[in-house]
Amino acid sequence: MATIEVRGLTKQFGDGPPAVDHIDLASEDGEFLVLLGPSGCGKTTLLRMIGGLETPTEGDVLIGGRVVTHLPPRARKIAMVFQSYALYPHMSVYDNIAFPLKAQRLPKEEQRKKVAWAASILGIEQFLNRKPRQLSGGQRQRVALARALVREPNVFLLDEPLSNLDAQRRASARDELQQFQRSIGTTTIYVTHDQVEAMGMGDRIAVIDRGRIRQIGTPKEIYDDPADTFVATFLGTPPMNLVERDGLIFGFRPEHFTPANGSHSDDVVRFQFVVHREEYLGSERLLYGEIGSAKAVARFPATTDVELRIGQPVEYVVARRHLKFFNPRTGERTRD
């Protein structure tokens, strides 16, 4: 097992802004660390630099405390699972899984044992003689994981491994993948643009935008205490409401935004909310509207009754402890 650390890591492709811009990041041993960000934010480039597939313009990569910046991937004892799974299409499942062992020139008998072990962990023993094209997406993904697992790497690097699965299969794969990681306890870096995956699986999440880490913390910290307006609006569906008032940006989650119902509590901040449209989603209802000129959303469990007056201002409140304040110029959090 090992920790991963990057120091001042930068990657510049041609002219223009760097894809990865002086990132410092350190994982804990055995941690499931998620890199979350919109497409093009540099998260995959960061992962590829950790893996050694991309040479950094500046900065260092450390695995297990050792600088590996200038080592080729095969010297880093890492395993990687790709979005496309990247199985070798001309080889059987067995040969795919055994490929890293063959590269290590392990004796044939050892190879057979290890492949059997990896295949049993992922439940793919019955497919060993098939070719990748004869497998479903979920099965291919498990073969890719087995190929990564079989060398007992120090580190797992996963690049959006679930994005090629259909929505139903993805939920169960999330669960399987997390259990798998917990049981083998290998430090894992997981790249995704899907906040549900990040929130559901990560021990910690690093939110990345334009080549920089905007915030790093547990899913709860990231959701409840966003460091800036980018993180606040990137996480949560619908995202945090942002309303400018008294020279500050007030931020609050749609689920904390409720009708005043004549309450006179001093612990709340009041807003005049004009509802334009309602969305009924089965388990919950979303009310879309405006506070002044700013768009806002309120969210209710479907079990609560809310009086709906489309187009008329209604007094809504947010408890003070649920309000976050941001600097309108920099977007960063100010005092609470």
Binding site: A86, Y88, R147
Partner: peptide, 13 residues
């Protein structure tokens, strides 16, 4: 595919 070449690289070949 680039991914397949990368995978071979990562797999230590």
């Amino acid at each position: 595919p680039q991914d397949v070449k990368d995978a071979a690289e990562i797999d230590g070949a």
